[in-house]
Design a protein around this nucleic acid. Structure first.
Lengths: 167, 167
DNA sequence: TTGAAACTATTTCATTTGAAACAATATTGA
DNA sequence: TCAATATTGTTTCAAATGAAATAGTTTCAA
């Protein structure tokens, strides 16, 4: 996928709903921001998920399953990514003395330094990229996504077909 | 990643901005909706990207690069996914008589039938999942994402460090 | 206490994704 | 025309992801 963002040729399908449009836009925005993040990290010896783990780790150590919960992914996904971060010297695994099942992901000094360097630039870039929204609009967007997020978590949203509750 | 969505233990970091919060929520919402889509397609012999390609293909055929543009991914990603869809009998490749470089992705009758069956249910599920937002809020969200999307495409958002334009 | 159940992380396997290199074809401009 | 350039799709490789199975550990109730 190239970084150039020229107008594309295809048309919006006629069969659509506000919900579907919102969801498609959400996917597109996510995809573009992810792409920019990827390019930002290009020269930094890091991939996007590796950077994400750095952001959730700490010097004192964070359980792998806490990181996977925040990243909304499976534990099994992180094993390999953490391995690569260890190979690069940015984190290390330490056993949790209180629970021998847990392995704590600890930032090394090199990892902490990397993070001190990258995080502020990352936030600043994001801020600039969202300049097309006013301060108020950003907050509006945040609140709408918050509602949506809560709604998705709390209700029975993954029902199977049949037995709709609004019958 | 399990489907259960119980409250998690971690706290929001103190160092954050409205932009970062909005982005993190966007990622989380995206992640949850994607997870639900995955579970919906579980018994349907389809993965999420496979279903997405079905949605963009047609009986008369669509160039692969048009599909990859709409999916915001690289052509190379689709080769394998299309191969699997062909193996399942839902699409086929046909050469474009007007341009021998392009290969048209055509829905088979089985693929068209699958889509007729799945698409309405898919839209209905999405609609229900977004019920926590009012009709007006869905439209607000859509408009905000539209603005953000346009802003991301039009401006020079992937600048390297230095030469900030707001100095 | 002990056995069943739950939890944590890893392993394994298939699929998806990102990126670069490539072959075939099309387009363009000298 | 024809050579340089661009476009389309595939191949290849590394990384990430989803899901199931597994081993080790903890929790909890009988």
């Amino acid at each position: 996928m190239s970084l150039s963002t020229e107008p594309t040729g295809w048309q919006q399908s006629s069969e659509t709903t506000p919900e579907l449009e919102a969801y498609n836009l959400l996917r597109q925005v996510h995809s573009i921001l992810e792409m920019y993040n990827r390019y930002d990290l290009r020269g930094e010896d890091l991939t996007v998920p590796q950077f994400m783990i750095l952001n959730y780790a700490s010097r004192s150590g964070v359980p792998l399953s806490e990181i996977s919960a925040r990243m909304m992914c499976d534990n099994s996904n992180l094993t390999g990514i953490v391995d690569r971060l260890i190979a690069k010297g940015y984190v290390e695994r330490r056993p949790d003395p209180n629970d021998r099942r847990v392995s704590l992901i600890c930032l090394t000094e090199a990892g902490a330094e990397k993070l001190r360097n990258l995080r502020p630039r990352h936030h600043e870039r994001l801020r600039k990229r969202m300049r097309s929204l006013s301060e108020h609009e950003v907050q509006q967007l945040r609140e709408l996504l918050r509602s949506l997020y809560s709604g998705l978590l709390t209700s029975d949203n993954h029902e199977r077909d049949g037995h709709q509750s609004d019958a």
